[in-house]
């Protein structure tokens, strides 16, 4: 028995049908897909297990603009033909579609609620968290993971984080979070075990806020989702 990376490299999807195969579509994937996907996944797993902690994503990739590289890294790591993907209008260009089709072969959907993964920039372009799929009471795992590009993961207004994965309390100071973020999170938390999960990405740094994480504004010190408990 031997092990080689060739098996998976040769599995690069060949659904080249309608998409014009420009160089931008074909290039810009991980240079070592098997090992880099593993490194990226471990970073995302650790981040999800420790909400608020920052992780580094591997940077050998170059998705076409306007898709930020960090979001591209998440897509290459987790998306494939089994995961319907929603792209925010800002990212929905022929080049990005072509790149995702070539590297992930993921179906694209127009409704946020039909997606398993959603990629969006924080801001007006991104629907509220509750617009995404929050799963069912029997199958709460069948929910969207929203991958949100933010300006920075440090230097913004501090938020307090509590919940599984956090020893007592963690602080996150991401810059450029959506309006009403704390209230949206509280609404999402109230659905538990249903709810969508969130990955914040700035450049090649990432931070996870799974549905269990209770987010409160650090300045007031009061939990806005106590009513949800």
């Amino acid at each position: 028995m031997t092990h080689s990376a060739q098996a998976s490299a040769s599995q690069a999807p060949s659904s080249q049908s309608a998409v014009s195969m420009s160089a931008a579509c074909v290039e810009g994937g991980f240079s070592d897909p098997v090992m880099e996907a593993q490194v990226a996944f471990r970073a995302l797993m650790d981040a999800t297990a420790r909400p608020g902690s920052l992780c580094d994503l591997p940077g050998s990739l170059a998705p076409p603009a306007p898709l930020p590289e960090g979001l591209g890294a998440v897509a290459l790591t987790l998306c494939d033909p089994d995961t319907p993907v929603w792209l925010a209008p800002a990212y929905d260009t022929p080049e990005v579609r072509g790149w995702l089709a070539f590297h992930c072969a993921c179906p694209l959907v127009t409704e946020p609620a039909e997606s398993v993964f959603a990629f969006a920039p924080a801001g007006a372009d991104c629907p509220p968290l509750t617009a995404f799929n929050s799963g069912t009471q029997e199958y709460p795992d069948r929910s969207t993971t929203l991958v949100l590009a933010v300006e920075a993961l440090e230097g913004g207004a501090p938020l307090n984080l509590e919940g599984p994965g956090i020893r007592s309390r963690e602080t996150l100071a991401a810059a450029g979070l959506p309006e009403g973020f704390v209230a949206q999170r509280a609404e999402n938390r109230a659905l538990f075990p249903r709810g969508s999960d969130l990955l914040l990405v700035a450049g090649l740094r990432g931070c996870a806020l799974p549905r269990t994480t209770r987010v409160t504004a650090a300045s007031t010190g009061t939990s806005t989702d106590e009513g949800a408990e």
């Binding site: 098996a7 098997v34 996907a37 999800t48 297990a49 494939d80 799974p210």
Partner: peptide, 25 residues
């Protein structure tokens, strides 16, 4: 020939997604 860590990449992705949802719930 077998892939690194035996499983093919699509299977790993499927399991990895399940692990992330498992941690989230």
């Amino acid at each position: 020939a077998y892939n690194f860590a035996y499983l093919d990449e699509q299977t790993k992705r499927m399991i990895r997604r399940a692990i992330l949802k498992g941690i989230a719930i």
